[in-house]
């Protein structure tokens, strides 16, 4: 699906809210960094990150920063 279509139609699957995303973001990122199963443990996060550009940016930033600090 094109970027514009994704913006207009969203992920089309169950997703968590922005508030839940912020609440669970640290846990999700640590599961990613440590090779866990973030999408299995926090369902709906991946869909929300693909539908919400602001939360997507917040996730990218935390993942980048934690990865840098873990190096």
């Amino acid at each position: 699906m094109s970027e514009l279509l994704n913006s207009l139609l969203g992920p089309g699957e169950p997703e968590i809210t922005c508030e839940q995303c912020f609440e669970l973001l640290d846990e999700y990122v640590e599961l990613e960094v440590r090779g866990g199963d973030p999408d299995g443990q926090i369902p709906g996060m991946r869909a929300h990150l693909s539908g919400c550009p602001a939360c997507h940016e917040d996730h990218e930033s935390l993942l980048a920063y934690v990865s840098l600090r873990e190096r």
Partner: peptide, 21 residues
């Protein structure tokens, strides 16, 4: 509200990154 599901610093960083963004 810190539940210990991640390190405290990871939990704290998200506030700083959000505010900055």
């Amino acid at each position: 509200t810190f539940r210990g599901a991640s390190r405290f610093t990871t939990w704290a960083y998200k506030f700083a990154l959000l505010e900055a963004a």
